[in-house]
Design a protein around this nucleic acid. Structure first.
Lengths: 219, 219, 219, 219
DNA sequence: TATGAATGAGCTTTCATTCAT
DNA sequence: AATGAATGAAAGCTCATTCAT
């Protein structure tokens, strides 16, 4: 099912009748902004193309000048959210490898998830609606993000000369990644029990205890 | 959005024209079985009521003798999956409180998630399609399941006289719970890297290191 | 383009959701009747599916219970017209081989074309709108009709022991066939200049002079 | 429907925003050339104005500088094809009235039909799509062409002092005219059975036998 | 209780036409 | 004179739901 992910390179092409690339970018941004709001509220399937066009601020005819089919909107939205998240994550470049750095990195990731929780929610509820065609492009991006988390952990472990197995670091990265999303998609329960700061502290302590135990062993 | 969860008591009523309760139960079971297969493949929105009826083995007219609207099928499916999971979890009653017991409990939960991964996937991809009306009933069940995990941890901690804050145990339970689902809904990447046993071992070690560090502190 | 005609055997399948074959036949007959009237006036392309449904006396939803796509209506119409023409032609079985018989046969064909001129017109204006898929089935029927005319001529020639080349009889049959249709699709000019009887007489004389000259030669 | 034909005089006006008549002519020629190719392949209704513009080598905006509505393209195309056919027919001016001349004239007409069979096909498949408004202009041209054939026959008959009724010559002209078109629009069957030369010979023999029989009677 | 034909609101998508640049 | 982005009416088609049998 996902065997083709590794081979995915370029972005998926979305058909546009309009030729002006600048304009395409601008209109698609408007489209995405509107669509996120809409999908947040009603989901992709319950949103009509007319509603999407309206939310974007143009007519249905114009919408179809910039996409080939309804699904393209979903792809553009997912793609854009990933880019947004990735960009925000890259803002904070933390490679020093100290324990402080690791903590900061994790906290930063959780805060990004908090800021973009609507988008994260939309994406997580809707990716599965993407066709077999578009899915790999999005999943590839997700893996890239997990890799970023992984790099952060390795940077720390290398710096501290902690011995680790690739598998362990990988699963740890996945856990952190999912716990970040959890804050968004389980907010109906989590955000009633914890503030963001509490959540960050609890999860960080917990994550680090796992890592440091290892560190204790390793030394 | 979910403020009403606590007040939810009875099951949500699903309209049926037929009176015979036994028959209702039988037909709905057939319906659910067919629907799960269908939703697994095409999702709720892309499945038509005709397809659901066919998969269940009866006519569209008959389908509507046992439900009020299409969404009811989704509700029944989600409800039934939760019941299924819960039942399986309850099969293994592990309250001894020993470390072995905790490990067994966690492993058991992960194995149940593995066995029912299709169902878990369906549920996780589709709950968001439930109306405001039906959602609370389903979320309530989810909380019950988290509570089961929580109880398992507490039982261990109490037995070991480990000091803990409610908040910590709660987040731990949520983590375990989500990690179990993760095995199902991130199988596209996880199940390429790990066998179920590896996954269980890695996650258990990791979870316990967090807990035991605590234990070390506590004593 | 038409290389596949010879291999066409069964009727082209037109999708129907309804199962009752009797009902399908009845509804399709209603549909065809309405559609012919409509196509006569506006042509296939300018007629909407809603108009077709209305002309047939049922809703758009019902229309699509009996066809798979709009084009199927055109196919059914063309198919039905051919069947109608063929049936009428077969009513008069003229194989005696006398000159009187030949004349009667030709006259009968022209009269059928006159009776069904609306249908003939519709078919001639719209066959080209059939997809590559459906066209062969219709062209095959046309060839069958030309063959009927051909048989009529041969029957006469054999009876009169006239020597003929296959090619000549074939082209003669094609001419008669087309002259019959001509009465319908050039009615805007022909029917202003001639009554049907005049037309029949003129064309018959003309056709026979060609044949009989041959006969004179042959003897 | 066609009662107005006789009163049709000037060409139908097609709206143009551009003033320069030379330019209009040039652009329309480009347009017609492109459109014929397009209509040949997909028909008028299935061709979009964008495609027409593209095939003509200019933008959709420019297209509408030279026509008022889509249908005008069809009118221009039909009109142009008629002009083309007529021009070719007039190339060979055969009025000598001899039997040779008649044969040559008929053969020439058939050869023109063969050369322009794509155009003939397009025209015959699409005239019916012309509005009530434009049709008379085109039908008038058709009658003119039938008259040319008629003149050819009369010229022969007069020269040979053959007695004829107007009606007979008229129907004969119509037959020849239609047989020429037949070569184009029934090519799917005719051109598999005959070469053009065979077709010409067969039809000519046949036509002449009718005429000469008459001649024999007449004397 | 079971059936499936009938319905029509509503969906996605197209495309002739306009008009500011 | 030329362009092409914008428009929205209208098209084909689907499908949840009803109801007579």
């Amino acid at each position: 099912m996902t065997g083709g992910i590794e081979r995915v390179r370029k972005k998926r092409e979305v058909h546009a009748s309009v030729k002006d690339q600048k304009l395409i970018q601008r209109r698609r941004d408007e489209m995405i902004r509107g669509a996120v709001t809409l999908f947040k509220e009603k989901g992709f399937h319950r949103s009509t193309t007319r509603e999407i066009a309206k939310a974007a601020g143009f007519s249905i005819g114009t919408l179809y000048e910039y996409i080939g089919q309804k699904e393209d909107v979903l792809y553009l939205v997912c793609d854009s959210i990933y880019d947004g998240v990735k960009e925000k994550l890259e803002e904070m470049n933390v490679n020093a490898g100290t324990i402080e750095n690791l903590k900061l990195g994790i906290a930063h990731y959780f805060r990004v998830m908090d800021e973009m929780q609507d988008e994260v929610l939309v994406m997580y509820q809707e990716v599965k609606s993407l066709s077999k065609d578009a899915l790999p492009y999005v999943l590839k991006k997700e893996l890239e993000m997990v890799s970023m988390v992984e790099a952060l952990i390795k940077s720390y472990m290398d710096h501290e000369h902690i011995d680790y197995r690739q598998q362990e670091v990988h699963i740890l990265a996945q856990n952190i990644f999912v716990q970040g999303q959890m804050w968004a998609f389980r907010r109906w329960t989590l955000q009633k029990s914890y503030t963001l700061d509490e959540y960050i502290e609890l999860q960080t302590n917990y994550l680090l205890s796992g890592i440091q135990m290892k560190a204790g062993d390793g030394k």
